Lab assay of single mutants.
Amino acid sequence: MQRVNMIMAESPGLITICLLGYLLSAECTVFLDHENANKILNRPKRYNSGKLEEFVQGNLERECMEEKCSFEEAREVFENTERTTEFWKQYVDGDQCESNPCLNGGSCKDDINSYECWCPFGFEGKNCELDVTCNIKNGRCEQFCKNSADNKVVCSCTEGYRLAENQKSCEPAVPFPCGRVSVSQTSKLTRAETVFPDVDYVNSTEAETILDNITQSTQSFNDFTRVVGGEDAKPGQFPWQVVLNGKVDAFCGGSIVNEKWIVTAAHCVETGVKITVVAGEHNIEETEHTEQKRNVIRIIPHHNYNAAINKYNHDIALLELDEPLVLNSYVTPICIADKEYTNIFLKFGSGYVSGWGRVFHKGRSALVLQYLRVPLVDRATCLRSTKFTIYNNMFCAGFHEGGRDSCQGDSGGPHVTEVEGTSFLTGIISWGEECAMKGKYGIYTKVSRYVNWIKEKTKLT
């Protein structure tokens, strides 16, 4: 034993070699072989497995989906700052455009905790909710729209109204504003409101030439003092309507412009014939205590009207009353817009006519005020429907199939267009061939041609 100890002390290297040989010859039971080890760690190889990531292109799944990435790591994937920024906006807080917040056709661009709407022409605001041009839906104005110097929408209202708090709607500024039905039992019968379409306001006024200088022999019209197929109006439903009495009662109609003036057809009036105007009328054979009678003290036909040349060209006249009318729910003026808007309103496509005229061709006159909704007829169809001249200051309205029309005794009465609950004068009943005849239409004086003249002559002093 002493000898062994001496050998170990003198030859430590020998001992180490012996131990190493023993270990190498022993069977290893701690580690699995290569094949079995792979069965336990069965993990798919990654895209760049075996390579240094710093030297390969980034992978979106590896960089940002398996674990949260930084902007720089995302930049490695896209290799483009702009594309990385677009991805980053949604990656950080989701897609803010998912709810489609942009209105009126706006395009949404996502941002971090926010979004941006790219608005089409005519709109602005956070969600493109603000109209900035009158060309689109009248700028959301209830009545009139004008573009300011910086191309912003400025709404306005006709006389007797003021802008509401929203700067879009119009509200009454006087007790009985024009064009409004205020009798409670008839307010439910107000005709369907007309909503502004998209309009090209630059070209809204037709490029028409008034044929002022045409000389033409007097034409022989049949029954051209021209509501057939209409309905009984309720008291106060058309408070701007008046009836004219002269040699015979209810020979023509008219509309209240203001307390002192009536507008009617020029062919209705004769110099030297006494005319009485009755406002607030409903049943011409009954006294309903809503009527107001006034005498006409002055007749002003349009300066281009000449019955000797043509009885229905420039067929418009103004009547001055001896005493002002007292405005109330049964006696209310009709609204008159400017030339541009009167023309736009007419193009809405349908209007209402009213009167006490004959209820059928050569038949009896109506006792109760009649009204009828009539569609506008395109000019080409209008011209083809008659052998008589249709001037540019006239328009056609009615039904091709016949059966409904204005008729004798309705002449001078109103053709009105309702705009968001307020009625505007767009025409004056003038003439036609018979009444409600198939293929024939009622012919009306186009008020847009005469609004400046009306307003100039009827100013209240």
Rank of each mutant, 00 (worst) to 15 (best):
S411T: 15
M437L: 15
G58Y: 04
V353S: 07
D131K: 08
M394E: 02
E401S: 08
V56S: 14
V374F: 02
N59I: 05
V174P: 01
T225E: 11
V183A: 13
M8I: 11
R75C: 04
L19S: 02
L321Q: 00
G122I: 02
R404V: 09
I7E: 11
D131C: 09
P333I: 00
E61C: 03
K459T: 14
E116T: 15
V331I: 09
E86W: 08
I344Y: 14
E420M: 14
I336K: 00
K109F: 07
P101A: 05
G229M: 13
A233L: 07
V353K: 05
L189Q: 09
G50C: 05
G439M: 04
D410Y: 07
G230K: 09
N213E: 09
Y115S: 04
I297A: 04
W118M: 11
F71K: 08
I454F: 00
V277L: 03
I334S: 01
S365C: 04
I297F: 03
P375C: 04
F238L: 05
T81H: 12
A149T: 12
G442V: 14
C157M: 00
S217Y: 10
F144S: 00
N343S: 14
I214A: 08
L19E: 01
N166H: 02
F55K: 15
G122C: 02
S354C: 11
T264M: 02
C268W: 00
L319F: 04
K438F: 10
S148W: 07
C97L: 02
S148T: 15
G403F: 10
N127Q: 12
Y444Q: 01
Y201C: 07
Y352H: 12
H267W: 02
F348T: 14
H289V: 14
A9V: 12
S184R: 09
E73V: 06
W453L: 00
V181D: 06
E61R: 09
N113G: 07
C396D: 01
G230E: 10
S350Q: 15
Q408I: 14
D405T: 14
Y47Q: 10
V92P: 10
F221R: 09
K137A: 06
G421Q: 10
V447T: 06
L189R: 10
S184P: 12
I214H: 08
G50Q: 14
G272A: 03
L367C: 07
R294I: 02
C268A: 00
I256E: 00
D131E: 11
M65D: 14
C119N: 02
I112P: 09
Y371P: 06
K446E: 06
I443Q: 03
E82M: 08
V154Q: 10
L19D: 02
T458F: 00
E79L: 04
P44W: 09
G50L: 09
N313E: 09
N113Q: 13
K459M: 15
G230S: 12
S354E: 03
I344T: 12
T276W: 07
N135I: 13
T290V: 05
Q96E: 15
R162A: 08
Q143Y: 02
N100S: 11
K109S: 06
T190R: 06
N258K: 02
N59F: 06
Y161Q: 02
F348K: 06
S365F: 06
I40W: 06
E124M: 14
F176T: 07
V296P: 02
T190L: 07
C145D: 00
L346T: 07
W118N: 13
L376N: 05
K188N: 10
G13P: 08
W88L: 15
F78D: 10
E129D: 13
N283W: 08
K51S: 14
K234E: 13
G442I: 10
P44R: 04
A279W: 01
